[in-house]
Design a binder for these strands. Structure first.
Lengths: 201, 201
DNA sequence: TTTTGACTGTACAAATAAAAAAGTCAGAAA
DNA sequence: TTTCTGACTTTTTTATTTGTACAGTCAAAA
């Protein structure tokens, strides 16, 4: 059984490599199988369908993401520093996994299985929790005035995500956002973050 | 010649009525003509093509919008009050002209004439100017700390627009956003506005 | 228990046909 | 001379078909 889990991990890692370059929808199960030098039915032995594999991929990525946030949380003291570190971490993951379209609703447009959407909402909630924790800590330390941490975390993340989606919308609709756009997004997010946390004091 | 301008206005108003209900792309020149009980070639006598008519419509709407902002600007003293009034005004126009998709890039998806895009950028710049003026006034009154008003106005408007586009993205992709979503957008924009301006103090 | 070659049905994309709408023009009405 | 129209052509959009690539299955082998 532990062998099976190893194999599953291997398949997930193989899938991620393809997904990063070509996106989820343009990667076929055959390609993933070929990369790993196994047959397609082998994949289906470990994952009942493509959605399950995608779900495995997404769960792994978000796991890594939340681990990174946890490290940021431990290493930073003030909310301002911490949120800045979060912005960097989010940006790193956003850049790396851009092709999967993990921000903004469903992954890679069409892939609309129900369990996927549910997991996405869970991830979003967990992300809000993380940010709310930072706000709560800041309230306890009297770094900011008391507010409803969850509500404000949601507002904060919405405005941050909004900047991303706006920049992408505006940018010349290439497959991949340019270095310049990426830099602009990061800068604006930092700027907004600073003003936002100051506004909570 | 003044008669001609009157007629042009009449056509624009007729077009707006259709556009509001059915959107720009799903409104035909024939329908607009029939509404006004004239023939299609009459329309083309006053506007060389559909894009020109759409441009006329957009120019009129933004004219009204900027007039409303001007009134807000005069009637409010603090930047906080003024920006709150701007949020309300923007929301009113957004709601009324939602079907034209005037926020977020090009109007009604496809309509991509060059002059339209140019006008849009001009409107966006003028909107930023308006907001920058408010910030400048607030700086002069020592209501907020000195910053680059244009840069901050851009950031402010991006985050505000981002909230809108995010809410619409999330919401059940109906043709029209629900009352609930609309209310949520307005609330978040007010909340963010308040925090933002406080963060600039 | 794990893996495979060979298969099927479906869903998406390319191609084509049909419909609708934009845009034009010669000439009539004011 | 300016404003308007019915009848027309051209372009764009939408609907329908066809072809193909891919997800998913199965009997059998390792």
């Amino acid at each position: 059984m532990v062998e099976t889990d190893k194999k599953r991990e291997l398949i997930i890692e193989g899938a991620i490599k393809r997904f990063i370059h070509y996106g989820i929808n343009k990667t076929t199960m055959n390609e993933i199988a070929d990369d790993l030098s196994v047959s397609k039915p082998s994949l289906y032995y470990y994952f009942p369908d493509k959605s399950s594999l995608v779900l495995g991929v997404i769960l792994k990525i978000f796991n890594d993401y939340f681990e990174a946030l946890e490290k940021d949380k431990i290493s930073k003291n003030t909310a301002e520093e911490c949120l800045a570190a979060f912005v960097e971490t989010r940006h790193r993951f956003f850049q790396k996994y851009y092709m999967l379209h993990l921000s903004g609703g469903s992954p890679d447009a069409s892939l609309n299985s129900d369990s996927l959407r549910t997991s996405f909402l869970e991830m979003k909630a967990k992300n809000e929790d993380f940010h709310a924790q930072i706000l709560q800590r800041a309230i306890d330390n009297a770094e900011i005035s008391p507010v409803d941490p969850h509500k404000i975390a949601e507002l904060y993340l919405d405005s941050q995500a909004g900047i991303t989606s706006l920049c992408l919308l505006h940018g010349n609709k290439e497959l991949f956002p340019s270095k310049k756009e990426m830099k602009s997004i990061l800068e604006k997010q930092h700027q907004l973050s600073k003003i936002f946390i100051k506004g909570l004091k």
